[in-house]
């Protein structure tokens, strides 16, 4: 293993996983606020809930959902990596390998989710 420039942390895997964790975390938090509010419409009326939840079923929002799930899956897998870094005796030694594992699992999970979500969406889509 060669280290060309920079420090152990700055500009390397440790820093970028931290940046990714923050950005996805903030995004998920704001979605969660909206999601509790839209779900709360079940207490207003069935029509109000169905109208607003219907907005999640158009093609633009489908792309947004894939992005949201991408953020959630990264935050979840990287979060488990953080737990291992903190509690596993070899965690700090292998934190970089674990980040590449996270990215590999993320790609696999997202291919599966995207294909399934798009197929189900197209099956039931009535067109514009």
């Amino acid at each position: 293993m060669t280290q060309t420039k920079g420090t152990l942390y700055k500009g390397r895997e440790g820093m970028w996983s931290w940046v990714g964790h923050r950005i996805t975390g903030v995004g998920i938090f704001f979605f969660l606020l909206v999601h509790v509010l839209d779900t709360s419409l079940v207490r207003v009326s069935p029509e109000a809930y169905d109208a607003v939840i219907g907005a999640y079923k158009n093609p633009i929002m489908i792309v947004g959902e894939i992005g949201l799930v991408g953020a959630i899956v990264f935050h979840a897998f990287n979060g488990l990596r953080i737990i291992l870094v903190d509690f596993w005796s070899q965690g700090t030694r292998y934190h970089r390998q674990m980040l590449w594992t996270v990215m590999g699992l993320w790609v696999i999970t997202m291919i599966g989710f995207t294909v399934r979500h798009l197929m189900l969406f197209l099956d039931g889509w009535g067109g514009f």
Partner: peptide
Amino acid sequence: GAALVVLIFVHLTVNLLVGEGIHQIDF
């Protein structure tokens, strides 16, 4: 965080990946 991984992955699977997926979600 560890609990939320399980809670949210099951939530997403049940709501979006089985049955009719996103189209099944209504009142």
